[in-house]
Structure formats: C-alpha cells, structure tokens
C-alpha cells in the first residue's frame, strides 16, 4: 500500500483512459501525457496499461508500506526519498527506476514548469478497481480512480500484488521536451471562419489561460471570427479538437472533455502532439502548425516505433543484467 501523507490539488490515478463508450456520454479521461506514461511503465516492466499517478501541483508526500520500485516521468518534480532509519535524503533521478524500502517517504515538491504534469509509475501499477475498462479517474462525473476523486491526505492506494519480479535497471529514459508547436489538421467547420481568423489561428502565439484544466486548454489571443453567426447541430467531438465558442477564443479539448459539442471546430491537433497538452503552462504560449493527413499518420507511426525500440532495448538490458 501507499499512504498519502499530503497531496496538492489534482493528483489523480490514471491509465490510458476509456474507449468505445463515447456514444453513452462517457469521456476518455486517462493521462494527459501518454508518452511519459508509457515510458514509466516500460522502465518498470509493468503491464502496458498499469495505472500511475498524474501529479499537477505539488507537494505530494507518500509513504510506502511495502518495498516498491518507482519511476518519475513527465515534468521534473524534484523527487526525493527519505527513510526514518537513514540520515540523508536521496534525490530521485527522473526517468530512472528507483527502489523504495518499506517505511520510506517519497516527496514530490513542485513541477519545474508550473502547470506541467508529472507521472509516478510504481512497480505492478496502482491497483484501484477497473471500472468501464479503465482505472482512470473521471473527475467531472466522480467515478473511477480512487473513489472518483483527486487524492487526499489519509488515502491508501493499493499496489498490485501480481507485480512481475523485474530486475532493477541501471538506465534511464529521457523525457520528451515539448516544442509548444502543435501540428494540426483543419477541422470540419474550418470554412465557416473568415480569412483573418484562418491567418490568426496559424500565425499568432496563443497564451494559455489559467482556466485550462483536464477538460480543455483555453487559449488567449486575438479572437477568431466566423463569416456569419451559426447555430450548429450537436455532434461528437474528440480530445484534440479545437472548438471556438462565442467569445472567439479557441479551446483545445482534452481528455476529460464532454463527448458531444455544438461549437465550430476550426482544427484538430494531431495525436502525436497531444501529449504536449500536459506541458502547457500559463507562462508559455503555443503555435498551431498546419500539416497534411499523411504527416499526421506518419508522426503517430514514428511514435509507436520509438516505443517498440525502447521496449526492445530494455528487454536486452534486462537479459544482460
């Protein structure tokens, strides 16, 4: 078990999320950064979709009641381990599998970039009940994860007992650095916007509003206007879709976004770049870059090839140990 001694707001249990249920109004949920998520689980030799903690704001203090190995990925959270029987605290190197002894406390202080997400993977995964095919927390509808909510002091997180005994690896995986350029394809309602809106959308740096959350990234900049006001019929939407509500300021839909929407969609961020939503900060800005469908598909393939290579390399390293 892991005992939560203290948690800042919005530490949640997440895996890749829920799929195939959007026709019932059920959102995807799941990690905002699937790259950091996969890296952590691969480094530990975990099942592919083992649940992790997504950490938004520090600090997070956890006490382990059983020996465990962990990997921190995503944004650097200045992790350290302290043990009542050891005089010094040990820094946790990001991306490096680290053993934690029974009774030790793991501290994550704050993200190196405010607003960016960090991930804590534990050997075997966090064993909250599987609900509708996922262990992810749906914060809006209060189900999944640990009691459908963010972690609080006093919570206990069950660890999987079926953790495969993987040897510890003396190697690390590097975090991806966000470029803050989001490649995108024009959306179904692109032609409803005027020429100036098209130019503004692709050319201007977009600020990130403080009101951004797991439902959507709200952008700040010069407003985008339609050729004429429209009242669209409600239609299915997906994470990555860029909606423009009446105030003319785009929202990039994220994992917890609702399943049906009625605002004009100017574009969709390609899937290979969606992980960057986890690294948007009110102090950063982003650009949209138009790409072809072929580039979008190739970028996704490129990413899955990266994971195949990483998986092979780790397997070889384990055999060599």
């Amino acid at each position: 078990m892991i005992e939560v001694l203290r948690s800042g707001p919005l530490t949640t249990v997440q895996d890749l999320g829920r799929f195939g249920l959007r026709h019932l109004g059920i959102s995807q949920a799941g990690v905002l950064d699937p790259i950091a998520f996969r890296q952590g689980n691969l480094m530990l030799g975990n099942p592919e979709n083992a649940a992790v903690l997504e950490v938004s704001v520090g600090p997070l203090f956890l006490r382990f009641t059983a020996p465990c190995r962990i990997v921190l990925t995503g944004v650097d959270f200045a992790g350290s381990i302290s043990n009542p029987n050891a005089p010094t605290t040990q820094q946790v190197l990001p991306g490096h599998p680290t053993a934690i002894a029974t009774g030790s406390t793991l501290s994550l202080l704050r993200p190196a970039i405010a607003g960016a997400k960090g991930y804590l993977a534990v050997s075997g995964g966090i064993d909250v009940p599987l609900l509708l095919g996922s262990r992810s927390t749906d914060l809006n509808n209060r189900f999944g994860g640990l009691n459908g909510r963010a972690l609080q002091a006093g919570d206990y997180l069950p660890l999987s007992r079926q953790a495969p005994p993987q040897p510890g690896l003396n190697t690390l995986v590097r975090s991806f650095a966000p470029s803050h350029v989001l490649r995108a394809l024009p959306g179904p309602d692109y032609d409803l916007f005027d020429d100036d809106a098209h130019q503004q959308f692709w050319m201007q740096p977009w600020g990130i509003s403080h009101q951004s959350n797991r439902m959507g990234m709200r952008l700040k900049g010069r407003r985008l206007d339609l050729l004429q006001p429209v009242n669209l019929l409600s239609a299915g939407v997906l994470p990555g879709d860029v909606q423009v509500p009446n105030d003319g300021l785009p929202i990039i839909l994220a994992n917890d976004a609702q399943t049906i929407g009625g605002y004009p969609r100017i574009a969709s961020v390609i899937q290979a770049d969606l992980w960057q939503l986890a690294h948007m900060s009110p102090n950063t800005s982003v650009y949209f870059q138009p790409v072809s469908h072929a580039i979008a598909v190739a970028a996704k393939l490129h990413q899955s090839q990266y994971f195949e290579r990483l998986s092979e390399q780790l397997q070889q390293a384990r055999q060599a140990d």
């Binding site: 394809l185 959306g187 179904p188 309602d189 429209v230 009242n231 669209l232 019929l233 239609a235 299915g236 997906l238 990555g240 879709d241 969609r265 969709s268 961020v269 390609i270 899937q271 469908h293 979008a296 598909v297 996704k300």
Partner: peptide
C-alpha cells in the same frame, strides 16, 4: 469531414 487523422464526421442534414 475528416476530424483529426482517424475520424470521419458524417452529417446527414444541413449542419445548421
């Protein structure tokens, strides 16, 4: 309409 790289939206009436 193409929505992202792997979805299609079929509208069977005028969208407005």
């Amino acid at each position: 309409s193409l929505v992202g790289e792997d979805a299609l939206l079929f509208a069977f009436t005028a969208t407005t």
